[in-house]
Simulated assay, not measured.
Amino acid sequence: MDTNTNNSDNLDKRQAIIQKAYEVFYKEGFHAAGVDSLLDGTGISKRTLYKYFASKEELIQAVIEHYSNLQFKALETYLADHSSPAKKILALFDWLSEMVATRNPNGCLAINAKMEYAHKHDAIEGQSSLHFSAFYELIYDLCKAAHCHDAKKVAKQIHILFQGAVVGGQTEGNPEIAQLAKGVAKSLLEQALH
């Protein structure tokens, strides 16, 4: 077997572990999910799991990164239908509203990780923070592209609104929270674009 095939098999197995862990952690939570439930039905042994991940916490970091990549790919597709940067900013809230209404009964995995591991594991908290930072950077780039006055401040305000809508949607399961936040974001943008 050549090196490329070995590398491909290793990446496939590693990705299979991440995908299964993503599904289990999302459904059961990080602390509640044991290693046995992560491997159930995969044909992957504990030995193989620990070949790719030194600890459950290292696997959790990989799962958060995987989740973040999935979210941003879905968001990129969703925003492609909106023409202007300002419309894309407001569409973030529509996307969130749809997530709460149809696809995401367990909330934001990065927030879940941040809450479960607050002050307990810096690397997991850090990986979660990278997810939130990436949302801020997206909003900031869109604010700059829209030529908002004081784009950093406006981006921070909209990011705070978005995070609040994520948490509100997660705790209440109400997609209207994102729409209420969108109304405030629209007012902020109107002021910043005059």
Rank of each mutant, 00 (worst) to 15 (best):
V24Y: 01
L189A: 02
V24H: 02
I60V: 13
N69T: 06
A32I: 05
Q19F: 09
F135D: 07
L193H: 08
L138H: 05
G168K: 07
Q157C: 01
A74K: 15
I18S: 03
I177L: 09
V167Y: 01
K120Q: 10
T5Q: 03
K88L: 02
I177V: 08
E190P: 00
L59R: 08
G168V: 12
F162V: 03
E116T: 08
H66A: 06
T3P: 00
D81T: 07
E57F: 13
K56L: 06
F132R: 07
H159W: 08
I124L: 04
Q157N: 12
L75N: 09
I139F: 14
H147W: 00
Y52E: 09
N69F: 00
L188A: 01
L142T: 09
A155P: 01
L188D: 05
H159R: 10
F93H: 01
D141V: 11
L96K: 15
Y67C: 09
L90S: 02
M99F: 00
L75Q: 10
C108W: 13
M115F: 09
L79A: 08
S83F: 07
R14M: 03
D94F: 05
Q157M: 08
A110C: 14
T171W: 15
V154F: 10
I17V: 01
Q19L: 10
A165V: 09
G164C: 07
A185V: 04
V167N: 09
G126P: 01
Y50W: 06
Q71H: 10
N104R: 15
A118N: 06
E125H: 04
K51G: 01
Q71E: 12
K186C: 04
D150L: 14
F30G: 02
D122G: 05
Q127F: 06
